[in-house]
Amino acid sequence: MQIAIPKEIKNHEYRVALTPTGARELVGRGHAVTVQAGAGDGAGFADTAYEAAGARIEADVARLWDGAELILKVKEPQPEEVARLKEGQTLFTYLHLAAEESLTRGLMASGATCIAYETITDNQGGLPLLAPMSTVAGRMAIQAGAHSLEKAQGGSGVLLPGVPGVAPARVAVIGGGVVGENAARMALGLGAEVTVLDKSIPRLETLDDRYQGRMKTVFSTADAIDEAVRESDLIVGAVLIPGAAAPKLITRAMLAEMKPGSVLVDVAIDQGGCFETSKPTTHAEPTYMVDGVVHYCVANMPGGVARTSTQALTNATLPYVIALADKGWRKALADDTHFAAGLNVHAGRVTYAAVAEAFGLSHAPITGLLA
């Protein structure tokens, strides 16, 4: 199969969809891997490393896309990339379509088969291709939040761990999944006072047992969120509804109850954000102020640590890429119902129910497409 690895063009996105190690695995199975010149530079993978792995380097972007059967990316395609997609091609990347109607309609118009990393499931009910980037984003959320608390960044001037004789910062994490646990773990390790809010009692029990009560676990209710808003120095939004838009848990009116210079880090921004005042930002300008509260809403947080993120992403995606390359998308998805959950758009139709519902579009069940 002809596999293309374009250079990511989203603002300050330094990751690449495949490492040279991954390229070598695919070439060894008889597939042709073409990498856009400089695609791996931001993550520290030179063109020569891909060539040594058996991949071909292509400087002509149009030729790269036009000759591809399978296109591997990291972030959702930008408008000029959507324009390059065509019927018969398979796109495999993060899509987060429930927050992007124009992108959804653009992918429908392309006629391509579009498979989203973030909606693929596993036997345990997890999201195996979202998990590695969720781990990175959760850990980065505390780094970003701690930096944003500095006075020069508009924050309240609170040091996360405090010092002897001075209390540590209070950190609330809304959502106890992969992002939330990693954020809480980082905050706890830095010495902050940490509270995790979640609606799953079993999940709260797991966290309580795992961390031996060192972090507070609270069942998430409107009252509990109100208290977190009033008491916290840093709040991390880590709520996920797979494939659907994130719920708005903190309204603009609630910001008036927060301490001046408090920080909101919205890791759910790819899915529309879980704070009413959230809007996507970039690594170039990561924060903005609303009513005296610092908002950090970078939509591609893991791109800031591109080498670690690229390696972690390839580790997770490679088995699925091999299946697509060896079998083609239809058989690969038919053989694995969990993989099939990743199909979001095919031949002009939306195949993922939550995305169709978000925009009032008709839903084409995947079962009919795989028959």
Rank of each mutant, 00 (worst) to 15 (best):
V163L: 15
S200P: 12
A245Q: 14
H295M: 04
L324H: 09
A184F: 01
V33H: 03
G176E: 01
F339C: 12
K75D: 02
E357L: 11
P202C: 09
E8P: 11
P242N: 07
E69W: 05
H295R: 08
G126Q: 07
L91K: 08
L197T: 01
L207K: 00
V239Q: 06
T121R: 14
A246H: 06
R330S: 08
L188M: 13
G243Q: 02
A341K: 15
D326N: 14
A172L: 10
T195I: 01
R63T: 14
V321G: 06
L129Q: 04
G44K: 03
A137L: 06
T206V: 13
R63N: 07
D209H: 14
L264T: 05
C274L: 09
D209R: 15
M258E: 03
V267A: 15
L64S: 08
A43M: 10
D60I: 09
R29I: 03
L240R: 02
V179P: 00
V173H: 01
G176V: 01
A167P: 12
P247Y: 08
G138I: 01
H338N: 15
T21R: 12
R15L: 08
D41E: 15
A37K: 14
D41W: 12
E69S: 14
C274N: 09
S200E: 04
P77S: 10
V196R: 00
H346Y: 11
D41S: 15
P77N: 09
E193C: 00
W65C: 03
R24A: 15
A354L: 08
A4G: 10
A371N: 15
G304F: 04
E181I: 10
A253S: 15
A192P: 00
S156Y: 04
T217V: 10
M258C: 05
P242D: 07
A53E: 00
L91I: 09
A184P: 02
D47S: 11
G243P: 05
P20W: 07
V61Q: 14
L370F: 07
H31S: 10
T314H: 03
Y320F: 11
K279P: 09
N300G: 12
A146D: 12
V179E: 01
E8R: 04
A256R: 15
G126T: 02
L70Y: 01
G304N: 05
A23M: 12
D41R: 15
T34K: 12
M108G: 05
G67D: 13
D336K: 12
R105A: 08
S156R: 13
P132H: 01
R185K: 13
Y117F: 12
Y14P: 04
G126R: 09
R230V: 11
G157M: 07
F339I: 10
A354C: 05
N11L: 13
T48N: 09
A268L: 07
A49H: 06
Q124P: 01
T21L: 10
Y94C: 13
Y288M: 06
G175H: 02
A245S: 14
C297S: 10
A246I: 07
K7T: 11
A347N: 14
